[in-house]
């Protein structure tokens, strides 16, 4: 920690259904149909990778470690991060759903071994929409947190994070090491170039299991069912502004 080009950043990335896919609920209500569905890196995690890579390009960061906790195919998600500029990867292989607290416990163990100065991760995954992992990790490590980051300024021993909050922006100063979770407007992630995708294939990728970190990955919340949200009935087209106001008046909306 301290001088330029000495920081280590850990970036946990999650493999999720691509944000462009319209998900379908299985007819038996047991979950979402994931067969033949395109999977990608969680968009908020992409922003986290991008931020780490930019700091490396600025000479502030020395090493970026991308981590994913998920099925064997999550290796592809790590390769994407490596192609964007991360240096090496750790895949913690699991089957089935992994709850945020389990992820946080595994990441805590990795942080204790890797001793990063910062962890960057998405504010939430677009599949379970939990918005918990970064905060839980920070708490388990006894670190500060800057959630929903809109911009970030790094000094030797602290990070200033402007956060997107309900009323506007709030800036906090965090003692390092710390966890930062990324919001939409922090940056625009790059596309990996073909040469970098080729290079990424040669970067080291370690494989682990939750047991290696002494963590039980069994979910504790019981999902009873997954159902379709209630549908809105078909609406009507109006021809003019005054007809629109008549209808709104009738509906008691104005």
């Amino acid at each position: 920690m301290g001088s330029d080009n000495s920081m280590k950043v850990l970036v946990p990335v999650k493999r999720v259904v691509d944000f462009n896919v319209k998900v379908r609920v299985k007819s038996d209500q047991s979950g979402i149909d994931l067969a033949n569905v395109k999977m990608s890196m969680n968009p908020f995690d992409e922003i986290a990778v991008e931020e780490a890579v930019r700091l490396k390009e600025k000479g502030k960061v020395k090493e970026i470690v991308a981590i994913s906790i998920g099925p064997a195919q999550a290796a592809e998600t790590i390769r994407t991060a490596l192609a964007m500029g991360a240096d090496r990867g750790i895949l913690v292989k699991t089957d089935g759903e992994v709850e945020p607290l389990v992820v946080a416990k595994i990441l805590k163990a990795i942080c204790e071994a890797e001793k990063p100065d910062l962890v960057f991760t998405g504010k939430q995954a677009i599949d379970d929409d939990s918005n918990q992992t970064g905060q839980m990790l920070a708490a388990l490590l006894g670190w500060g947190q800057g959630t929903f980051a809109h911009s970030l300024e790094l000094t030797d021993a602290s990070a200033k994070v402007a956060r997107e909050i309900d009323g506007g922006l709030q800036t906090v100063e965090l003692k390092l090491p710390a966890v930062v979770t990324t919001d939409l407007r922090l940056n625009e992630p790059r596309y990996a170039s073909l040469p970098n995708i080729m290079k990424a294939k040669k970067k080291p990728l370690e494989e682990k299991t939750p047991a290696d970190y002494g963590v039980d990955a069994t979910p504790r919340l019981k999902v009873l069912k997954v159902s379709e949200p209630p549908k809105r009935g078909p609406g009507i087209k109006v021809k003019s502004v005054s007809e629109l106001l008549d209808k709104l008046k009738e509906a008691g909306a104005i």
Partner: peptide, 11 residues
């Protein structure tokens, strides 16, 4: 979940 495109019932 999934931006409100599905509703999960959890215990």
């Amino acid at each position: 979940i999934y931006a409100g495109n599905a509703i999960q019932t959890v215990q």
